[in-house]
Computed example of a mutant assay.
Amino acid sequence: MTVAPPPRTPAPAAARHRVRGGVRPHPVWELLLIAVLYAVYRIGRVLASGHVGEAMRNAHRVWDLERTVRLPGEERVQALFLHSESVIHVVNCYYAYVHFPAIVVFMLWMYLRRPAYYRWVRWVLIGLTGLALVLHLSMPLAPPRMLGIDGLIDTGQRYGPAVYGAPQAHSIANQYAAMPSLHIGWAIVIAIGLIVSARTRWRWLWVLHPVATVLVVVGTANHYWLDGIVVSVLLAAVLVALRPSFRRAREADAPAIGEYG
């Protein structure tokens, strides 16, 4: 006589969510949060503009400090690109068109495909951008292309495409908010998020994105080396503060290990 196996007990809802890699936040609330944060950020960037004299004085101090600690001159990186007008145009396009679309695509992908890590990444970006905004407000800084240093030019204005209009323009692209570089900071966040959430052996290639971003922002004379160093320190502090959130994300994602390519 064959004994029928006992009926399976449905897994608790929480367990089912963990297998799927975490519960996605409600999209309406996420859109509202993004809209509010964007409005705050835009207002902050506008408030940070207009301090031309202070921004120029700070720029000369940063330049002198970099030479004191023997950091390589930003003009050396730019010289590598200026050998070819096609290359410098590609570099300018990378600066102009990759930064913001990349973070939008990254966050959308994390929301849809890696929901276990999405909340952690979202708070990392909020924390880093908030700290950066505080520095933008407290330390206006003109980019190196405005210093008139021999060997440094405004590659965007010279070869195109140009990101910035007149320096006096009030926009989210504030030219006097070089410190720290969110181009570099956001690129590092993208690389970290994709590396820790992916399972493919090729995931480490995402390191090339922040490396390329550093060379681009320095080579176009839009940022100093120190802008990247400072944003890296800020990001490290945010990551340490959000370690509990990362542990929860990793635990929620654990049942799904092996499902990702």
Score class of each variant (00 low, 15 high):
I172G: 15
I192C: 08
S171A: 15
S171W: 02
L226A: 14
I188N: 01
I195G: 01
V196T: 11
N174D: 02
H170L: 14
H170S: 12
R203A: 08
Y176F: 15
V218S: 06
N174T: 03
Q175A: 14
L182G: 06
W204I: 14
L205S: 13
V231C: 03
S232R: 03
V207P: 00
A221V: 12
L194D: 08
G228W: 04
A212Q: 03
M179S: 02
I172P: 04
G193A: 15
A177F: 03
W206Q: 02
S232I: 08
W225M: 04
V218T: 12
A221M: 13
H223R: 11
V207T: 09
L205C: 09
Q175I: 15
T220P: 08
A198K: 04
R199P: 00
A173R: 06
R199S: 10
V211L: 15
S232E: 10
L182N: 10
N222C: 06
L215H: 04
L182R: 03
L182D: 02
R201H: 14
V189Y: 03
P210K: 04
H183W: 00
L205P: 02
G228C: 15
Y224V: 10
L205H: 07
A169G: 00
I192E: 06
L226Y: 13
A221P: 04
Y176A: 05
V218Y: 02
A169Y: 00
A178P: 06
D227Y: 06
V217N: 12
A198C: 09
A191I: 02
R201L: 13
H209N: 12
Q175C: 04
R203Y: 04
L234D: 13
G228Y: 02
H170A: 11
T220A: 08
V207G: 01
L208T: 04
H209L: 15
G193P: 05
G185H: 05
A191V: 03
N174R: 03
S197G: 09
R203I: 10
L205K: 05
P180S: 10
H183N: 08
L182F: 02
L208G: 05
G193M: 10
V230F: 06
A177Y: 07
V218K: 07
V217D: 10
A191D: 02
A177S: 15
A187N: 06
I188H: 00
A173V: 01
V217R: 07
N222D: 13
V211Y: 06
V218A: 05
W186M: 11
S181K: 11
A173E: 10
L234M: 14
A212K: 03
I188D: 00
G219W: 09
L226T: 15
H183C: 01
P210N: 07
I172A: 13
V217S: 12
T220I: 09
V231W: 00
P210H: 00
L226F: 15
S232G: 11
H170E: 13
V231K: 01
A169V: 14
T213M: 15
L194R: 10
L205R: 09
A169C: 00
A187I: 04
T220W: 09
N174E: 01
A198D: 14
A173I: 00
V207Y: 02
Y176G: 00
H170V: 09
V233N: 07
S232V: 10
V214I: 14
W186A: 03
V231P: 00
L194Q: 09
A173W: 10
L194S: 12
S197K: 08
T200D: 12
V216L: 05
G193L: 09
P210S: 07
P210E: 04
S181C: 09
V216I: 12
I184N: 03
T213H: 03
R201Y: 07
